[in-house]
Design a protein around this nucleic acid. Structure first.
Lengths: 159, 159
DNA sequence: TATTGTTATACTCTATAACTATA
DNA sequence: TATAGTTATAGAGTATAACAATA
């Protein structure tokens, strides 16, 4: 029964994936990111993976502008989630770091999001859960590939 | 080979689902919603499913406030995606409708998003795609249940 | 008076342009 | 002069509070 898998055409799967994506959006919308706004979240997540980058690099990563990013950082520094450090090699640069509180905040948010997910996943039969995992792992691999390939020239900042 | 499904524990699946969710976010971020902002998108999507609702109902559906929603609608009306109509039964009310252009805009966006998804899905082996579909359909069912249950008192509209 | 919607005002986020400081 | 970052100013989105119109 669990092995019955009708019509795996991309268009069909795209539809159910899109639906799942929208549900996930609603679900995660409940795991509030307060006291950080959505924009501030993007800064924190970027810094988590590229700690110590300068402001221009950060604003490029966000597809934003230096002034906007500077103001975002103002507030994140003010609430103690981010730290600014003047560059040692080039004193014009500002090195941005996640503070200890910033790190703890992200860990906490992730935990809350995964809890929201688990509340749903435990409602699923074990074999469906296993199918979901199998399918999503392949999806993640394919998505990472696709993003890497088409991401090469989607940077727009080509001068 | 395709039937090997290790450890379907919720925590494990939650992790891969969270990763897939973040990938989807990046993927869809490319299918730009311009000329509508994210907030305007929420208005359009809500109107699509509840055409003709009044402003207060809309603002409640968005978990926003009447003044903010009124301003959002100002701009959507200005660009021709939404229409305001005075209520026939109660002349205080404003009935909000998606315009023809508004509908076309949503159709187009959905098509672009599903194309982004299909580009990824076609990279997956057919059996993984089938597993993904099986798992996601169960996920959607469970998520709908979960949201309905815990949504009962998070709706604020208990009246 | 209670309800629907708008206007008044303020704060965040975003952007472009002008400015300061370093190289 | 070129580059890194900030400040100046403006527009969109959001909120609370005060208001207008209708019931």
């Amino acid at each position: 029964m669990a092995a019955f898998r009708p019509r795996p055409e991309p268009a069909e799967v795209a539809r159910v994936t899109a639906t799942a994506g929208e549900l996930l959006e609603v679900l995660w919308g409940r795991a509030s990111t307060a006291p950080a706004s959505a924009s501030q979240m993007r800064v924190l997540l970027t810094l988590e993976h590229q700690d110590g980058i300068n402001l221009r690099t950060l604003s490029a990563a966000l597809a934003s502008t230096p002034p906007s990013t500077s103001r975002l950082c103002d507030r994140l520094v003010a609430v103690g989630l981010v730290e600014r450090v003047v560059g040692r090699a080039d004193r014009r640069e500002v090195r941005l770091h996640l503070s200890t509180r910033g790190r703890a905040f992200l860990d906490d948010l992730r935990a809350r999001r995964e809890q929201e997910l688990q509340a749903v996943l435990t409602l699923m039969p074990a074999d469906k859960r296993a199918a979901l995992r199998e399918g999503l792992e392949a999806f993640c691999d394919a998505a990472a590939l696709q993003m890497h390939d088409s991401g090469v020239r989607s940077d727009d900042r080509t001068a």
